[in-house]
């Protein structure tokens, strides 16, 4: 019923494809890594990607629904605690525990 050979080749293919996306830039651009344009990219890309990741994980929240209040409250708590105390772990826990409490009750 289950085909182990298929699963194994499946895993190999998916491993290679994933690793390829992570390895390619290092292989192709390593020689240019000291180029001013590369250090410019290295400086500005992380904040851009981080902002995009935040928007990405929030994109499925329906901000017209009642449930979105849970998300907004948890975000506000995370940001508030972080600006107040500046302790990443504390901010993340505060937001997450509040969110878990709100969605589970």
């Amino acid at each position: 019923m289950v085909d182990i050979g298929y699963l194994l080749s499946f895993i190999v293919v998916m491993t290679v494809a994933t690793f390829a996306t992570r390895l390619l830039p290092f292989v192709i651009f390593q020689k240019q890594s000291k180029h001013p344009m590369m250090s410019y990219i290295a400086k500005y890309t992380p904040p851009m990607i981080m902002s995009i990741l935040v928007l990405y994980v929030l994109k499925n929240v329906d901000f017209n629904s009642v449930e979105s209040i849970n998300t907004l409250a948890a975000i506000a708590t995370t940001v508030g605690v972080h600006l107040w105390k500046g302790n990443s772990l504390l901010s993340i826990f505060a937001g997450t525990f509040l969110y878990m409490y709100l969605v589970q009750s």
């Binding site: 904040p47 981080m50 902002s51 990741l53 935040v54 994980v57 929030l58 948890a74 975000i75 995370t78 940001v79 972080h82 990443s88 901010s91 993340i92 937001g95 997450t96």
Partner: peptide, 8 residues
């Protein structure tokens, strides 16, 4: 989500 927000 909170991690990404804090990192921003």
């Amino acid at each position: 989500t909170a991690l990404f927000i804090v990192l921003v």
